[in-house]
């Protein structure tokens, strides 16, 4: 499905990719139904979502953002990441030539629907190396737990 984007082994998301391709193959589907809020390829910022026993983690690949212009909100089970990235490219003049302008500039907004079993009152967001990581803990009741088996 994405021949140029095949993962290497050991990558966190390689398993997802391979699963998706197996499903495509088994069901004879060319286009696996995507999330209704998914943006096209190349959207800014790109988003990965992962889940552990304790939390759901969202990674937004958002390089070069001024924190004062970034807004992360949670409302009715929807997480919104919005902001603006200023252009770094100067005006073209007789002394300045712009050859390539591929990096995203302007306002952006991405929306992710959260699963029902998370505690959206305890969202934690950190920004490091251009990646915004948002961790939302799962509700205590949703965490896997071991059941003691009693013997009589």
């Amino acid at each position: 499905m994405y021949p140029s984007l095949t993962s290497f082994s050991g990558d966190l998301f390689a398993e997802f990719d391979s699963l998706q391709r197996q499903l495509d193959h088994l069901m004879g589907l060319r286009g696996w139904p995507s999330s209704i809020r998914a943006a096209g390829r190349g959207a800014y910022p790109a988003i990965n979502v992962g889940s552990t026993e304790d939390a759901v983690e969202i990674y937004a690949f958002a390089p070069g953002i001024d924190m004062s212009r970034l807004e992360v909100t949670v409302d009715k089970g929807l997480l919104t990441i919005a902001g603006e990235r200023a252009s770094d490219v100067p005006e073209e003049t007789d002394k300045v030539s712009v050859y390539t302008r591929e990096r995203f500039a302007g306002a952006f907004k991405r929306v992710v629907s959260l699963p029902a079993d998370v505690d959206s009152s305890r969202v934690e967001a950190t920004y490091r190396n251009g990646v915004l990581r948002i961790a939302i803990p799962k509700l205590e009741a949703a965490k896997p737990r071991r059941i003691e088996v009693k013997t009589h």
Binding site: Y2, L5, T6, S7, F8, D11, L12, F13, A14, E15, F16, D17, S35, A38, R41, A43, A46, I47, N48, V49, G50, S51, T52, E53, V56, E57, Y59, F61, V131, R133
Partner: peptide
């Protein structure tokens, strides 16, 4: 390098290559 937990399961991914 995202520093994610080794127990993390991918749910949705737009970035699938780490290089």
């Amino acid at each position: 390098k995202l520093g994610e937990s080794s127990r993390m399961q991918p749910v949705y991914a737009e970035i699938r290559v780490a290089h």
